[in-house]
Simulated assay, not measured.
Amino acid sequence: MQNNYSQRLEMQIPKENVYTGTGIVSNFDDEFDKLSKSYTIHEYNDVKGFIRKHENILPFIHELTPLINKYFPNHRKLIEFCKDPEFLDLDFIMIYVECNDYDKDRITLDKFEDEPLYMSKFSKKINGLVCVDLW
């Protein structure tokens, strides 16, 4: 039987991380309300409904929050639900960081996006439901 992958380590595609978070949250409302301490929540009910539907992204947002605060300590942050008009599977949560100096903040955001937690701790399915960008 022939293997369909390269034997050179640098040429291998890493396996998908299947970690989906710490499991179902015991008290969703309390955990969700913690978000309002770090973020302004735009269209509260839409955001809450989407996160309730995809409850495993709540631990991801909670783990991202200290990392975002590390890179953007004095910036205002906002969470918004982004609805795709055609495909439900393309809906996602956007975390916006208020931009003070675009060039400097863009460089900082690029560094943040290279962080291992943001890149690979959670599965791509969860990472794809939460995006971070400047506003």
Results as ranks from 00 to 15, higher is better:
residue 109 L to E: 03
residue 59 P to Q: 02
residue 134 L to G: 05
residue 103 D to I: 11
residue 77 K to C: 06
residue 29 D to H: 03
residue 96 Y to P: 07
residue 6 S to T: 03
residue 50 F to D: 08
residue 93 I to C: 02
residue 51 I to S: 03
residue 95 I to V: 04
residue 40 T to E: 08
residue 24 I to M: 04
residue 8 R to T: 13
residue 80 E to S: 06
residue 128 G to L: 07
residue 6 S to R: 08
residue 37 K to N: 13
residue 1 M to S: 13
residue 52 R to Y: 12
residue 59 P to S: 02
residue 120 S to V: 03
residue 17 N to I: 07
residue 113 E to M: 14
residue 13 I to W: 10
residue 101 D to Y: 09
residue 5 Y to H: 11
residue 12 Q to L: 03
residue 67 L to D: 14
residue 123 S to T: 10
residue 11 M to G: 06
residue 112 F to L: 14
residue 123 S to K: 08
residue 71 Y to V: 10
residue 46 D to M: 15
residue 97 V to M: 00
residue 109 L to C: 07
residue 132 V to N: 01
residue 44 Y to W: 07
residue 90 L to Y: 09
residue 30 D to A: 07
residue 34 K to I: 02
residue 47 V to C: 08
residue 98 E to M: 12
residue 50 F to H: 10
residue 132 V to C: 03
residue 46 D to R: 13
residue 101 D to S: 08
residue 18 V to P: 00
residue 8 R to F: 09
residue 42 H to D: 12
residue 44 Y to A: 02
residue 32 F to K: 00
residue 48 K to M: 06
residue 7 Q to I: 09
residue 69 N to W: 09
residue 42 H to I: 13
residue 122 F to I: 05
residue 27 N to Y: 05
residue 28 F to T: 03
residue 62 H to C: 08
residue 114 D to A: 14
residue 106 R to Q: 15
residue 59 P to M: 08
residue 61 I to L: 01
residue 27 N to I: 06
residue 32 F to A: 01
residue 97 V to Y: 06
residue 99 C to P: 07
residue 4 N to I: 12
residue 48 K to Q: 10
residue 59 P to V: 00
residue 38 S to L: 12
residue 28 F to K: 03
residue 34 K to C: 05
residue 48 K to W: 06
residue 23 G to F: 00
residue 28 F to Y: 04
residue 71 Y to H: 12
residue 92 F to H: 15
residue 107 I to Q: 09
residue 130 V to Q: 07
residue 132 V to W: 07
residue 66 P to N: 12
residue 17 N to A: 00
residue 64 L to N: 07
residue 128 G to Y: 11
residue 135 W to A: 13
residue 13 I to N: 10
residue 79 I to V: 06
residue 52 R to G: 03
residue 62 H to L: 12
residue 73 P to L: 00
residue 70 K to P: 01
residue 15 K to P: 10
residue 122 F to H: 09
